[in-house]
Design a protein around this nucleic acid. Structure first.
Lengths: 213, 213
DNA sequence: CCCTGTGGCAAACAGTTGTTTACTGAATTC
DNA sequence: GAATTCAGTAAACAACTGTTTGCCACAGGG
């Protein structure tokens, strides 16, 4: 289907990637209503329409598939974060843009967001660690961006990093709040966005007065 | 065994409560290494040393047991929060006391904390909703305490509520960070506490300058 | 063109699962 | 002291699980 992969990889590997992706997609869909540690290998292969044994051609077990899902899920988030961080604007405006970007991201990849929120503290250690490692990388990236701003003049590296952690945690919280409310009335979505904006405004206020009181 | 329950309830009901509690305890222990949606009924009864069918004398299914665990887990937290909120002191000191209280709570009830963190976004709807409802009650309680402080003069009820939400979210985050690190070296525990304190300090800073900029 | 590598298949494996049934024996009630 | 309530039992049920085995069809390199 994907002409670029077909051209560079040959029919053989392209087909393999295709069913691998089908497994990932099926798993992600099934994970909307359960957690990874209860997701069965047969359950996934059945949805894809493939023999159970075929699973082992792609993953050793469900934990390994989970780790692959982490990369897929947080990869797209990575792109979004970079876009927001790149902008250099008024604080008030960057907050609005950030919240809107998160809302948009959740609208576009609800299953990915739900997966990360669910498995971040979930029952599969390898997946938890993969998510933690990726979120730590996000934190470092945000910290670097924050450090480059003039507001951070005089801040220690540790303080910048703790602020970045606060932002990342808040982002995950907001995203998971969006994804758990999206099915219901749009009113709820607005109140979540509004709360998130006010919270970010308060944090940014505390940031500007750090070591000044 | 418990003389007070034995005295008021009779041997019959006391015994029933005892095995019910044994089921809850066994489930909580098993949930340290998996999530609720993968926890089997037989698995729990086997640990307790009771026939599988006996489970139904206490819970309709595992989801119902999960909801019971939510009440048990967040009940103890409730006590802790009240204790912290009751104190009227310097902002700096109340932060230190809060973080220490959270660390202490995690040391005393690690399985409960892990359970709440894990199932807050977990795969069982009824449990998710029970946790959300209980955390919302915490938020209201915190909001009421915040509103009573002089720093909140002039604040709208909505703003107080959003600050309370920020505090509750931060509390859950910190607690789950503690519980996931406690097994390793104590150094890590110290850095988590330190980060949490600085984050709270920044938030409290933003709070004092709210609507003043 | 043949040969090799390999993605996927069908079948069988031993275990495990949730749930129902009829039951027992002891605590409670009258 | 007899009658009743009911927490816990033992056994059986069909359905499902992860994993292994040998096999096939076929793309890709020589």
């Amino acid at each position: 289907m994907n002409s670029s992969t077909r051209a560079t990889l040959g029919v053989r590997q392209a087909q393999k990637l295709k069913t691998r992706q089908a497994l990932l997609d099926a798993a992600l869909k099934l994970l909307e209503e359960q957690s990874l540690s209860s997701l069965g290998l047969r359950e996934v292969t059945r949805v894809v329409g493939v023999a159970p044994a075929a699973f082992y051609r792609h993953f050793r077990d469900m934990a390994e598939l989970g780790v692959a899902l982490v990369e897929e899920s947080l990869g797209s988030l990575h792109v979004m974060i970079r876009a927001v961080l790149a902008e250099q604007q008024e604080a008030e405006e960057v907050i609005d843009r950030s919240v809107e970007a998160v809302a948009d991201h959740v609208r576009r990849h609800p299953a990915h967001v739900r997966f990360v929120a669910r498995e971040r503290h979930g029952g599969v250690r390898a997946v938890r660690e993969a998510i933690a490692a990726e979120l730590a990388r996000f934190g470092d990236e945000v910290a670097a961006a924050l450090a480059a701003q003039e507001v951070s003049r005089g801040w220690s590296a540790e303080d910048v990093r703790m602020l970045a952690g606060l932002y990342v945690d808040h982002l995950v919280m907001t995203a998971s709040a969006f994804v758990e409310a999206s099915a219901e009335e749009p009113e709820e979505e607005r109140v979540i966005a509004d709360t998130a904006r006010r919270q970010l405004r308060l944090i940014s206020l505390g940031r500007r007065h750090w070591r000044a009181a």
